[in-house]
Design a binder for these strands. Structure first.
Lengths: 243, 243
DNA sequence: CGACAACTTGACGGGCGTCAACCGGAGTGG
DNA sequence: CCACTCCGGTTGACGCCCGTCAAGTTGTCG
């Protein structure tokens, strides 16, 4: 659909390159995939729990979150997403969406037919492997989140979420470890860590007082990465960044 | 390696059949796979965090759990496994184990070379799809667990874990909804729900008093499935049982 | 019958939730 | 240019759910 030097889905391609070896032919096929590109406002629901999507969603710009809600109405964010991420690759092989996805900033996404992506995955095994690997890393991150909300206190939980976010952004070339722009409200941070916004607020103040970071609204500056990492009990192994 | 009417890895094959369409040829190749079968005692570590396994582990008999540990020493069980489950399919495409797996009862497992399984996945796309689908369902369960430990209270968490366990056992033909044999200590239930064993004990008593279930050591009888399901806020959709 | 793991129960405390009030910045409309 | 609104952040008071500590009981396997 486009054949520029920099294809529209470039962030996704760069991510897939990190996930596995891609040959020239693989890259050509990926660049030739049919896309429906869309700009969406903040808080737009991209996938709704219960839907049976016929396409997958690539995040090209901005940030997104996946969440579930309990019958009490409580929300739980189960993952955060940055440009290059595939937001719902599980729909390649699962019918019904078991959770929702929404943009947490204004964002640019590309929709791809799940049939076409599936065909590509089996026609070009390198692509299939990269996609599968991506699913597996997603799952690894979910496991770490179970540990995070299950067994860490508020300070560690929030610090851990920040560490993960920074490292993943860095890996995609989206900013530095020292200067972090977190596109989330304190309520959303709470939803991601199993806390209330009130307690998030108090805990951020504590992290500030500890000298681990400095806040100015949504702008965080990590003052002492190593201290933050220790507070967070953060070990990046579960991100499986090294191939 | 074996060609009986009932191959040794029958539980796994039955599960894969539920995950996707398998042709006669697929079944033949699956049954011909090279296995290393092993009986292991309770609490045997099958995979250790940090390992770089060269094989995958099928659970044929007994029960297993996957867990991570925080630097504080706190354990978090991230999933429970029943016969037919593949315990570490993520190692097909990921090198380093990001968590540990252990038998929680005496168990029988079969080890398969990850290279051989990978070749099979690409040679027989039906098998590949079934395996990939299995990974995706695993991930869906992790997401539900994040919600469970993040946003539900102790009673719901434990009830939810019980509901999931029952439904999955039922789907594998391993027992009924009314009579549940839970192969876990209260400490392990706590590790799976982000609680302490003391609080698990108190909460089980509450569930008992509510009339949702009756306990006799590890034997649970669900007295009122619908009440338990309501307490648990349990909706089996995330298990993606229907193909 | 001794050793040990697991379960049980009570007393106490703290981390986090709840409720509520107030503040501050960004729109928006008159 | 100034209300007015709304969302999000901030702070305090208070209470509860669940953790901690500790002692005692039960069941199991030598």
């Amino acid at each position: 659909m486009q054949s520029d030097d920099e294809p529209i889905i470039d962030p996704v391609i760069r991510k897939l390159k990190r996930l596995g070896q891609l040959a020239t032919k693989d890259l050509a096929e990926l660049s030739a995939i049919t896309l429906h590109v869309e700009n969406v406002p903040r808080l737009r629901q991209l996938i709704r729990e219960g839907d049976t999507p016929e396409r997958c969603c690539f995040l090209l710009r901005g940030f997104a979150a996946r969440h579930k809600v309990a019958s009490s109405g409580a929300r739980q964010v189960v993952s955060l997403h940055i440009p290059g991420d595939i937001l719902d690759i599980q729909h390649l092989l699962l019918g019904r969406a078991d959770h929702s996805v929404e943009a947490i900033t204004p964002a640019r996404v590309a929709w791809v037919s799940k049939g076409e992506l599936q065909r590509l995955a089996w026609k070009r095994p390198n692509i299939g492997k990269a996609l599968w690997r991506d699913c597996l890393i997603d799952a690894s991150i979910f496991r770490e989140w179970v540990l995070n909300v299950g067994r860490r206190d508020a300070k560690s939980r929030i610090a851990h979420m920040l560490c993960e976010f920074v490292i993943r952004c860095e890996a995609m070339g989206l900013g530095s470890r020292e200067h972090l722009e977190l596109p989330m409200t304190q309520t959303q941070i709470g939803d991601a860590t199993g806390l209330t916004s009130v307690h998030v607020n108090r805990t951020l103040k504590l992290l500030d007082e500890d000298g681990a970071l400095v806040r100015d609204r949504n702008h965080f500056t990590v003052m002492d990465w190593d201290r933050l990492r220790k507070i967070a009990d953060f070990d990046p192994g579960y991100l499986h960044e090294a191939a």
